[in-house]
Design a protein around this nucleic acid. Structure first.
Lengths: 213, 213
DNA sequence: TAGATTGTTAATCGATTAACAATC
DNA sequence: TAGATTGTTAATCGATTAACAATC
């Protein structure tokens, strides 16, 4: 695969997801072409950064016109694996875990939740949408048999690392961590932290600075 | 305030939230001291980075022993504004919005949700925990009167910017964006994107690379 | 064609790491 | 005291920006 020629730096990868969201918006509005300048303005970047970033993917613009949004979207889709159907499990059937399991946007984007787990016997057996909350002891078996790709951690922070270890032992490929705890995994397992609480603390800091100075 | 002497770079700020989570864990386990080396190992950093980061805050270690966790926690608490009670509103009473409103961790950490809003008349008036879903038209009034600090955006991506504009016009200080859309706000309003969908796409990319190469 | 916009190279800027004197 | 660990300076590394020739 051509677009995987080099490792894409994570700073670039993050922006590629922004481009992907934006090019979708553009296509929804029937825009067929877009310039690096235009993208930069909308996303708070410089046009130089945008062009540099695009040099990492297998897609080119045209000198006097910019980038055709259809081809751009297709290229980003391929790089980001948005054209693949992934299998997910959610660990933790609290408010957040249940909400994610019910959240339609994931399925629509190819992230299919094929199981929700908890250790609380009062929750096990209950229905969340069309699936049933299972005992976390079954997690390893399900991940192994159904070849689950990604595990979503939505348990209390204090047990997050334990769940991560379980997922890693089951042969998971990626972990989305929704808790405030930092999680460690071997290099073969990718981890992304969503930083919801951390994000609130960043805002908290920013507001404090703004109001004091 | 001494700790606000200089703007803390956002790369450093992000790690400060990690240190804060970790020092809490240490204190829960009764550890009174920790070294930069120890922190670095746990969080996947170098001890040099940890010491550099700490030079941004009003807290010092002791040469042969490291950092006392109580003082460290207190200093981070102050920098991150974790010692302040903030008022939040949640816009969007879908699965995610409702889950956040019910999520106890926010309140426990000083982020008090004092309103949940939606534009769907079928949802307005229904209860979510102890609060009632209100019409988004009332948003501006509530933010203004109750001096709400932070708005959480949990609506569909396509209307996220509209909600952000509304929040900004109401005089909000910070925005936590849970959608996939990138949001623009004036410099006086801080925006943090939680990147849930973007995070899944990052994992998706990483897994694709891992399996192909 | 003329002009606009790309792709790329070189320059700048900032963040991370290494090294080590200061210190408790 | 001797040794461990900090705080800080200088070196390295990587990411962003500027500039401009290539090009459609």
């Amino acid at each position: 695969m051509k677009e995987l020629r080099k490792n894409i730096p994570s700073s670039v990868l993050k922006r590629l997801t922004h481009y992907y969201a934006y090019v979708q918006e553009l296509r929804d509005h029937g825009m067929a072409w877009v310039s690096s300048q235009h993208i930069a303005e909308r996303l708070g970047l410089t046009s130089s950064t945008v062009r540099q970033d695009l040099s990492h993917i297998d897609f080119s613009g045209i000198s006097q016109r910019g980038y055709d949004t259809a081809g751009f979207q297709k290229a980003l889709c391929s790089v980001l694996g948005a054209d693949v159907r992934w299998k997910l499990v959610v660990v933790g059937a609290g408010n957040l875990g249940q909400a994610l399991s019910l959240h339609g946007e994931f399925a629509r984007r190819g992230f299919n939740i094929c199981g929700i787990f908890d250790s609380d016997t009062r929750k096990i057996g209950k229905k969340v949408g069309s699936s049933v909350i299972r005992n976390v002891r079954e997690l390893g078996g399900v991940v192994g048999h159904e070849k689950v790709d990604i595990g979503v951690i939505a348990v209390p922070s204090s047990v997050a690392q334990g769940v991560a270890d379980l997922l890693v032992a089951s042969g998971i490929s990626g972990i989305l961590n929704l808790t405030f705890a930092h999680i460690i995994a071997p290099a073969r397992v990718s981890v992304v932290e969503t930083r919801i609480v951390a994000g609130l603390l960043e805002l908290s800091h920013a507001i404090k600075v703004l109001r004091n100075v």
